[in-house]
Design a protein around this nucleic acid. Structure first.
Ligand SMILES: [Zn+2]
Ligand SMILES: [Zn+2]
Length: 356
DNA sequence: TATCACGTTTAG
DNA sequence: CTAAACGTGATA
């Protein structure tokens, strides 16, 4: 038994506490809270073992592939909390309650946070603060299959559980919470214990995690002091999925708009800035700039809520301007053209009927 | 080929 | 305005 890991899952959309780690987070926008809804927290359950395994592989993966990064400096990047748009299922936004008890909710947050695109269109309804809108044409293959996705091993980390799994799980939300250790002050023993996020705000009554976030930690058995590499060290960034509700209510509650809203489709790009030098965003200089594609929001990487904090993109965010490698949308990785891509999307949509 | 760097787009 | 991240040329 070398390490133990504890995973915590929070699928609560609403939190009232002030969320903002005092520690060191990335707090671009001031005053953000996470509405908390305890009730929903009851079902969420995780298979700790499973998650642990995943995490381990993830860590492993990193140990090898990112040896350089890891080796050089464990986790150079300060822990920041990235507010990402939590991709949500349509159903979720409709009823505010996902079809399944806990599974994906963990990853997806339950509120329509981000504006999702139905099919190449963009919604203005985005609730998420800074997050990117997601295409919602819900393509995803089957939900439970993320492991099937092309993502590298590391990807497994955080893969959603199937509803079934969740139900079967022995642990309840409460338990979940227990497993979560949160430093009341911001950096208590708990943190050292390795179970906390630097960026988490003081718990309300004991818990403090942004809704829709799964936390996993590895405790090195002996570890106490330095615990070589722990999340608390800021190895991971937690994307705050809950941020959505900052407006308290209105949009967060069930704005279906997000879903439908996208019809507008392209239309926005206005200024044709022909970028001359280097990459230039629009890329296509001369002619009509290609529309920037948006993340699908349903692929494994998209569902990921945390920034690994150690990948080149994370470490290089300042200059690279790229999303965490592990969060890079599968769709976006593909070449723009790819007819298959489209097809699959459609098919995926169908797949979703399963939910309705 | 993979990665870096940068200008750009996009949304709040 | 700011922050996020896409697209792409330059580079390794
Ligand atoms: Zn990363
Ligand atoms: Zn995606």
């Amino acid at each position: 038994m070398a390490n133990m890991s504890s995973s915590v899952c929070m699928e609560t959309p609403h939190a009232h506490g002030h969320a903002h780690g005092h520690a060191h987070n990335y707090t671009p926008t001031p005053g953000r809270d996470f509405p908390l809804q305890m009730e929903s927290c009851m079902n969420p359950v995780l298979d700790y073992s499973a998650q642990m395994e995943r995490y381990r592989s993830f860590a492993n993966f990193y140990a090898k592939s990112s040896a350089a990064a890891a080796a050089a400096g464990p986790f150079p990047q300060t822990a920041k909390i990235a507010r990402i748009a939590a991709p949500i299922f349509p159903s979720a936004r409709i009823s505010a309650m996902p079809p399944w008890p806990c599974d994906n909710a963990m990853l997806w947050g339950r509120k329509p946070a981000a504006a999702v695109n139905v099919n190449g269109a963009h919604a203005h309804r985005a609730t998420m603060p800074r997050a990117e809108p997601v295409n919602v044409h819900m393509p995803a293959k089957h939900l439970g299959q993320d492991s099937a996705l092309p993502m590298p091993t590391a990807d497994n980390f955080l893969s959603p559980l199937t509803a079934e799994q969740c139900r079967g799980l022995p642990v309840g939300g409460a338990e979940c919470m227990n497993r979560l250790k949160v430093p009341p002050g911001g950096a208590g023993e708990a943190e050292r214990g390795g179970a906390t996020f630097g960026g988490m705000p003081p718990p309300l009554g004991g818990l403090s995690l942004p809704p829709g976030v799964i936390v996993m930690t590895t405790l090195h058995s002996g570890a106490g002091s330095s615990s070589g590499v722990t999340m608390s060290d800021s190895a991971f960034q937690i994307a705050n999925a809950a941020a959505d509700c900052q407006h308290s209510g209105s949009s967060c509650s069930g704005s279906p708009a997000a879903l439908s809203a996208n019809a507008s489709a392209s239309g926005s790009c206005s200024g044709a800035s022909n970028s001359s030098g280097g990459g230039g965003g629009g890329g296509g200089n001369g002619g009509a700039a290609k529309r920037k594609r948006k993340r699908c929001g349903v692929c494994a990487p998209c569902r990921r809520l945390i920034n690994c904090g150690v990948c080149s993109s994370c470490r290089n965010r300042k200059t690279g301007h790229q999303i965490c490698k592990f969060r890079k949308c599968e769709e976006l990785k593909k070449k723009p053209g790819s007819a298959v891509e489209r097809a699959s999307s459609v098919g995926a949509a169908d797949t979703f009927r399963w939910f309705f």
